[in-house]
Design a protein around this nucleic acid. Sequence first.
DNA 1: CTTTCTGCAAACGATTTGCAGCAGC
DNA 2: GCTGCTGCAAATCGTTTGCAGAAAG
Lengths: 145, 145
Amino acid sequence: MADGTLHETVARLLHAQQQRLTPTRTVIVDVLGASDRPLTIPEILATRDGLAQSSVYRNLVVLEQAGAVHRLVTGDFARYELAEDLTGHHHHLVCSNCGRIDDLPATPAVEKSVQAAVDQAAAAVGFSTQHHRLDLVGLCADCAN
Amino acid sequence: MADGTLHETVARLLHAQQQRLTPTRTVIVDVLGASDRPLTIPEILATRDGLAQSSVYRNLVVLEQAGAVHRLVTGDFARYELAEDLTGHHHHLVCSNCGRIDDLPATPAVEKSVQAAVDQAAAAVGFSTQHHRLDLVGLCADCAN
DNA sequence: CTTTCTGCAAACGATTTGCAGCAGC
DNA sequence: GCTGCTGCAAATCGTTTGCAGAAAG
């Protein structure tokens, strides 16, 4: 997705919540958009000087409520990524040794069978599925040696 | 799994780490084993009187390191369940409205396609998969109305 | 007896919030 | 001007840890 389009899309999501696309929010969206994996708050802060920690926290809440950003907690602290509407559906590779998390683009074959078989089982117990999360836990290339 | 067998299995896991199956640990294992969904610390504390919060936290760490208990963080705080070795592989139904999490037994069909297709994609980027986590996010029976 | 477990209370650290100043409309 | 955003510092809250007594071997 081109940057211009990304900014426009986020701006639209924010406006729907009576929120603006401020400079700080633009920076956060750019940082997340430039990464191929979910980032922690310290990682976001480290990319640019002049970002206040509390502002990043606060804006991530706003961006998450607007549906532009997704929060995920796997280890000891939270990580953030652009919402799948903006980046496309994907899964995560979680390294059980070093905690690193990478993105793995979804494969159509898996998606289809997951949706079909699991949604059916879920519906049987009265659960209406909105979306799913699939994480693979194992050793990343570095930790596997 | 019969209770006797469960206790024996957990005791064996603990002994492998030079740890004992103490009364508090037995209680925790029983509480988790009696539940069909992962429990929070407050929920565990509420089931029995006389449990000290710090002891529960400390013993859950020990039980997790021994491989008897699994910790998962989805919302604002952690939840615990018996390890899949003891309960069998399953997925989670996460209610996006009330935060409730229920277990969903794994279906052989999905497992097979997930393992095959996703593991292959992961291996292509140098990742060696140990296991996977599949959560369905949506509305539980109560919240769907 | 020595080592481990327990419970209390204090410490910790990631995240949240109150407040005063600044920017946008 | 009024309303919302920012940054600082203080508060919050789930979780961890130090310590002294109790329990297990």
